[in-house]
């Protein structure tokens, strides 16, 4: 049984149809990349998975449970985490408070220290408000929140966007470590990084899945991917 099943969903913003008949599967401890040009609905897929924007048609099943239309907090409590594209730290909370709030189960102090072990650069900013962090530090914080949240599935939206190579390296290292015991869905503009991280991929175009497959043996020059990404 797949950990997550997205089954023929249509998702709208108001009257605008963003996703049409999208179906995807994510297995336990599998990493799946969602690839596509800007504005094709990649982020909406994640929002639909989490029920932040529930679908009008189709079903989303997580751990075998139909979560369609469920409260997002319930889906999150079941073990689905989200690292959004714009990071969205709680800017008026300290770094430590941002971490504490993300721990759903287990020893909170232990989990918080685990986050500082993953991203030691955050340690000195422990008591700083999140709005004092740089973009890279905010991304590490957003990632740390997802990693210590006790999630079985983590949705990671554009983890490398706008970051320096050093920070990208940190983030990539954390994701590689995370994928050992967590399933990941990654949206990533950097094709080499997406292919490096993922076991399988889905290509989205105009709100529809137009291709899917294994990433093994593919690179950024592979025609089966490039033919869908050309403008």
């Amino acid at each position: 049984m797949a950990l997550l099943e997205v089954d023929g969903v249509d998702t709208y913003y108001g009257e605008s149809k963003i996703l049409e008949d999208v179906s995807m599967e994510v297995g336990v401890d599998e990493t799946v990349a969602i690839i596509g040009r800007n504005g094709v609905g990649k982020t909406t897929v994640m929002r639909t998975m989490l029920q932040l924007t529930p679908p009008r048609e189709g079903k989303v099943r997580f751990k075998g449970v139909d979560v369609t239309g469920m409260e997002t907090s319930e889906v999150a409590s079941m073990g689905m985490g989200w690292v959004p594209e714009d990071r969205r730290p709680f800017t008026q909370l300290t770094v430590e408070e941002n971490l504490r709030i993300s721990v759903k189960e287990g020893d909170v102090d232990e989990k918080v220290e685990e986050a500082f072990d993953i991203f030691p650069l955050l340690t000195d900013s422990r008591n700083d408000k999140a709005n004092q962090l740089s973009g890279g530090e905010q991304q590490m914080l957003a990632m740390a929140r997802g990693l210590i949240g006790g999630n079985d599935l983590l949705l990671v939206d554009e983890p490398s966007e706008g970051l320096s190579p050093i920070v990208v390296e940190e983030i990539t290292g954390a994701l590689k470590k995370a994928k050992e015991d967590t399933a990941l869905v990654v949206i990533e503009q950097s094709l080499p990084l997406a292919l490096e991280l993922a076991d399988r991929y889905y290509i989205l175009d105009r709100g529809m899945v137009v291709a899917q497959g294994e990433t093994e043996g593919l690179d950024e020059e592979s025609e089966e991917i490039l033919e869908h990404l050309r403008v």
Binding site: L50, S73, P84, S102
Partner: peptide, 8 residues
């Protein structure tokens, strides 16, 4: 929204 996504 982010709070909800963290399970709150």
């Amino acid at each position: 929204e982010m709070a909800e996504a963290l399970g709150i």
